[in-house]
């Protein structure tokens, strides 16, 4: 880098030319958050009974911690709505074998979705899922599945 600078001085002095330089920088967070191993979780609703009038629910958790130069960090979680969503946050599971394909809608919430926590301290994230009776009562018998990627920033 120093050598380039020296060459530059020489060239500009001779040509008496000017150049416009766009200057940009991004200040990175002083923090860096990671999911603790294994960084995976299973949200299993188990057996859902079509005769039930109550939502089917499931819960699981992930653990994360933040490190870096700052004493505390503010993390933020987002999810990709899974593989079969019809729109953002309109998650669906897909029937294992039905043809044509059949889907069952469910909701996914992350708690807390964002928080400011001390660095190097475990933070448990609760992942809650729910299937409304209207979505499972007339669904075909059988297994349904989806896969959701949760992204942690910074």
């Amino acid at each position: 880098m120093l050598a380039l600078g020296l060459i530059g001085i020489g060239a500009n002095a001779l040509a008496a030319d000017t150049a416009t330089v766009v200057v940009g920088a991004t200040v990175l967070s002083k923090s860096n958050c990671k999911f603790n191993a294994p960084g995976t979780a299973t949200l299993a609703f188990g057996n859902v009974d079509p005769a039930s009038g109550s939502p089917a629910t499931a819960s699981t958790s992930l653990v994360l911690r933040c490190g870096g130069a700052a004493a505390s960090a503010t993390f933020n979680l987002t999810h990709d709505s899974g593989q079969w969503e019809t729109a953002p946050n309109a998650n669906r599971m897909k029937h294992a074998t039905a043809s044509p394909a059949e889907y069952m809608a469910y909701t996914l919430t992350l708690t807390p979705q964002s928080a400011t926590i001390p660095k190097n301290t475990d933070q448990t994230i609760t992942i809650d899922g729910s299937i409304a009776p209207a979505d499972f009562q007339n669904a075909s018998m059988g297994s349904y599945a989806d896969s959701v990627v949760i992204t942690l920033n910074p």
Partner: peptide, 19 residues
Amino acid sequence: LAADTAAITVSAAVLGTCK
């Protein structure tokens, strides 16, 4: 470096039942 990801496997089984 700043973003990490976790994969969540979601599953359910609709029971065969009659009433």
